[in-house]
């Protein structure tokens, strides 16, 4: 990654877009304190992530691209574990778990080992795990992956509500219509560099394209390349 610099305000949804391998996940992991940057500075609510990662982790909720959870625990045990580590009051924890479990319809899996559950269910558990402490900053890495349409919709509405409550949300996604729909601002990362940033109107003006897919393809220089790839595939199939 090279010279990435951006700021996300309170009450804002910031979309982080880019092709596979462009550095989105690495950036989000650094923000979440999971990875350390070799240089540079990351601050969340004025707290330096590198020098004070534990304090930052108290206020953020991070949802990774692939849920890496304790497979030999049940969701109920995992939520209890998170409650204990984060020091969430038991009454509040129970109330929040019940609400989320109901919303994402995972009640019947609560006493099953996480390792035996489907990817989508694991993703829901990962989402709930990162929301339980009511974080002020939410960092999500392609978290819609594997979710059924109903859960994806619930998550979308939830994010909008979180934004309205004043929380900051940074999320990466490949679902461009979703980004277009809910993001206040979008950052475009390509080969480890932030090549464009702004509201949808600002990006439209910059790329001289109407929808986000075309803007994305144009700014990542993939538009012409695509026609050649499709033609090559047609020749062999």
């Amino acid at each position: 990654m090279d010279g990435i610099s951006f700021k996300v305000e309170n009450g804002e949804i910031y979309g982080f877009l880019g092709p596979n391998g462009s550095g989105k996940s690495t950036t989000l992991k650094i923000l979440a304190g999971v990875l350390k940057p070799t240089s540079g500075r990351v601050e969340i609510e004025g707290i330096d992530v590198v020098s004070n990662p534990v304090e930052v982790k108290r206020i953020i909720g991070y949802v990774p691209e692939t849920p890496t959870l304790y497979e030999s625990l049940t969701p109920a045990e995992l939520f209890s574990f998170i409650g204990g580590i984060r020091g969430i009051d038991e009454k509040i924890l129970k109330e929040r778990v019940n609400r989320f479990v109901e919303a994402f319809e995972i009640g019947k899996y609560m006493n099953q080992f996480i390792g035996t559950l489907s990817f989508g269910t694991k993703q829901k558990i990962s989402l709930i795990a990162s929301f339980l402490h009511d974080p002020r900053v939410i960092i999500m890495d392609e978290s819609m992956n594997g979710l059924d349409p109903k859960s994806a919709r619930i998550l979308r509405e939830l994010l909008i509500r979180f934004r309205d409550e004043g929380k900051s949300i940074i999320f990466s996604t490949h679902v461009l219509p979703l980004a277009e729909m809910i993001c206040d601002r979008i950052g475009l990362i390509y080969e480890g560099r932030l090549i464009a940033e702004g509201t949808m109107d600002e990006l439209r003006e910059k790329a001289q394209e109407e929808n986000l897919e075309d803007i994305f393809l144009k700014l990542t220089k993939s538009k012409d390349e695509m026609a050649n790839i499709i033609q090559a595939l047609q020749e062999v199939l």
């Binding site: 049940t74 969701p75 109920a76 939520f79 038991e90 924890l93 019947k108 609560m110 559950l117």
Partner: peptide, 13 residues
């Protein structure tokens, strides 16, 4: 999975 609806679970902090 999902054979029967289990709604009772314990969450402790």
């Amino acid at each position: 999975f999902g054979e029967k609806e289990i709604k009772e679970y314990k969450v402790k902090s």
